[in-house]
């Protein structure tokens, strides 16, 4: 469904992504882990077409259902966003216009892709929010982002992202700003998406626990390169690359022992 081929990109002067290749199959959850500066967010920006002025694609290609995203025009890509692929970010409040209710945001998102009445949009909103098992969807639609807790806001952002039924959801550290109990709810919401709607997810996180919980396939990025790629079981529990091994040893466990800090001396 999504194929990234030997992609290189610069961001803010440096080469942030170096020759990355990976793929996402329909309905699959792919997790990318890495530390700050590893290029994982830039990778998502390239796929979503959100690199902006500070970044540039240097080489390679990104294919979505066989079509090259990089050779599409601006308008064609805009039409794809929301309908074919959508994205959620780390800080859910920044995903919303603070002056719009959640209902208005959903209505505007639907309207971009075709005519719809407010009433219809509201109906779709309610059924979507209920299918994500969010309580009191009517009230949620009438709320402003600032009135919601971080976890509710992120789940509303997920709803807004998928309201036009994209087949692939990109998620950039979607739970990193949240408390652990809320983090779990957001993860359950995303897992539910895949289960009920078959949405594929490409999630980027520095939190190995989140990736371990969600992903089918896992990639490990370091200094812009994808140093390891494979099934979750293999990458997280019997890694072959030295960096992956050290990274995994550094993750704190519930075993009463200190994480291993012998990271490159």
């Amino acid at each position: 469904m999504l194929k990234v081929e030997n992609l290189s990109a610069s961001y803010g002067g440096g080469e942030a992504v170096r020759g990355v290749s990976l793929s996402v199959e329909p309905g699959q959850i792919v997790g990318i882990v890495g530390e700050s500066g590893s290029g994982k967010s830039t990778l998502l920006s390239c796929i979503m077409g959100l690199l902006g002025d500070r970044g540039r694609i240097l080489g390679g290609d990104i294919l979505f259902e066989g079509r090259s995203l990089l050779s599409m025009g601006r308008e064609e890509r805009r039409q794809m966003r929301g309908k074919e692929l959508a994205m959620v970010f780390q800080d859910p409040e920044l995903s919303f216009d603070p002056l719009w209710t959640i209902g208005k945001t959903l209505y505007e998102s639907i309207r971009v892709h075709g005519p719809v009445t407010k009433k219809e949009a509201r109906k779709r909103g309610i059924s979507l929010l209920s299918s994500l098992e969010l309580k009191d969807p009517e009230m949620l639609l009438d709320s402003y982002p600032s009135q919601l807790s971080g976890g509710m806001c992120q789940r509303a952002a997920i709803a807004a992202a998928i309201v036009c039924g994209p087949r692939l959801l990109l998620a950039d550290e979607p739970t990193s700003a949240l408390d652990v109990t809320v983090q779990k709810q957001v993860i359950d919401t995303m897992m539910g998406l895949r289960e009920r709607l078959g949405t594929a997810i490409l999630i980027v996180s520095h939190n190995m626990g989140v990736i371990a919980r969600m992903a089918d396939m896992v990639g490990v990025m370091k200094d812009g390169e994808l140093v390891e790629w494979g099934e979750k079981k293999q990458v997280l529990y019997s890694p072959s690359h030295e960096y992956t091994k050290a990274l995994i040893a550094a993750v704190p466990r519930m075993d009463g022992r200190l994480p291993h800090g012998g990271f490159y001396g």
Binding site: E35, S36, M208, L247, P252, P259, H260, G261
Partner: peptide, 10 residues
């Protein structure tokens, strides 16, 4: 970062 965290806690 998690690798730095492990060193600091150590």
């Amino acid at each position: 970062d998690v690798s730095v965290q492990a060193k600091i806690i150590g």
